[in-house]
Design a protein around this nucleic acid. Structure first.
Lengths: 243, 243
DNA sequence: ACCTGAACACCGTTCAAGT
DNA sequence: ACCTGAACACCGTTCAAGT
């Protein structure tokens, strides 16, 4: 409620405004940077600049670039947590409802951070049984608690974790990859240089079926496709559970 | 049939043996390098060294590092081609058999190049309707021809392409990611520096369900899981086709 | 025609030194 | 305690120059 003109604020604004450095703050800035400018543009130096600091200062809070990336992935994955006891939108309706809410959350995350989702998908998990994109102990624990408390057996819950991970990874990475093609930071269309790059852009007419079906192939059913595949997965799990 | 002691061979071996440079040869070497030493170790300079040449020479054949990566992905994806007319192992048995052979081929590719598969999975496809990992015109054309010639409608064939891509991507990337954890080039375990990295390795005992189910979670069923999920996908497509 | 030396701009990272 | 200047080793890439 402090007035913007309060002396404290005015004084601190005298030198370039900058919040105190911290690991959390650095990770926030890094995520924002990648969202805005893509992963290759994230540099220790550029990140320092964004924070009003020299690059070397970051090393007090972050063990190098790799550790920074790990921190970013960790932070994003935490956003996947859904109260396993259910909330106002998805009460304790059954495990299907829980998986549904987790799925839409993961999809929202992927869409919100298309340049970062590949990182979540491909960086080596810290334990071999932590499967992307549900790659944190907290998220896995929530998952297991939610399903077991809703009546699934241990084996079913673990099988569901496996199947659900693959499902999310495949669908969301695919959405993000094709979506990324248009969203990607516009790398100025470099005009081919003079290397003898093979004419990889063969005329589409050499591929008659592909050409003929192009309208079908181009149609974007991402939403419906995701919903449908999720329903099928739930059906499959349902068969597994009640057998 | 030439004898190893033939004068030609002896003479060419006088200076450091090196095959003539070419785009194909460079791409081969790059793939071998990544398979052996991981992606980060692939450098224009290191690649030049492996080819007995200075880094700058590569630029005559390759439009920079990005183009090189694209070339590598392109080459690998071509290995996915399966004769759509069937071969001795999988004659014209029906579209299920074709998809099965394509699936095992893709899985073999992923296992043969675990460090490269993430590249196939995440690089932006050149056309929005080319979906990883089946991201080349040749492979897609084969796919469509195979399925349509086996009786599928246009719509079913395209729907199958979509579902099949997601399936492969999810399962194979997941296998490779967890597998990669153990296979990855042993980055000497850097001991944490002195940055205030949060104690992310919480004791597993804070996650009782996860801890209790760890044996189940750790069990590696990759083979069976893949087979089973593939069967379910084929069933699902079968229902779609014959409706 | 094919390769290289030299150079440029830009990385990640370390460490002694500043405040 | 927190940040920085200076430096190091290493990138990708260009281009004039060599053979």
């Amino acid at each position: 409620m402090a007035n913007d003109d309060s002396p404290e604020r005015a004084r601190s604004a005298a030198r370039p405004a900058r919040e105190p450095l911290s690991r959390d703050h650095i990770i926030d800035a890094a995520i924002a940077s990648v969202d805005e400018r893509g992963l290759p543009a994230l540099t220790m130096r550029s990140l320092g600049q964004r924070l009003g600091v020299e690059a070397m200062s970051l090393y007090r809070y972050v063990n190098g670039r790799e550790d920074l990336l790990e921190g970013m992935v960790g932070r994003l994955v935490q956003e996947l947590r859904v109260d396993p006891r259910g909330d106002e939108h998805f009460p304790t309706d059954g495990w299907q409802a829980y998986l549904q809410s987790l799925a839409v959350g993961a999809r929202r995350l992927a869409h919100a951070h298309p340049s970062l989702f590949p990182l979540i998908a491909t960086r080596h998990p810290s334990a071999p049984w932590l499967r992307p994109p549900l790659r944190s102990l907290e998220v896995v624990e929530d998952f297991l608690v939610a399903l077991i408390s809703r009546g699934l057996s241990d084996e079913s819950a673990v099988a569901a974790y496996r199947a659900f991970s693959s499902f999310l990874l495949g669908h969301l990475l695919l959405e993000v990859a094709t979506l990324g093609a248009s969203t990607a930071p516009v790398e100025e269309t470099l005009d081919e240089g003079d290397a003898e790059v093979p004419d990889n852009d063969l005329p589409l007419s050499d591929f008659p079926q592909t050409q003929r079906l192009q309208p079908l192939l181009e149609a974007d059913h991402a939403d419906a496709e995701f919903e449908l595949a999720l329903e099928h997965l739930l059906d499959r799990l349902d068969a597994l559970v009640s057998q």
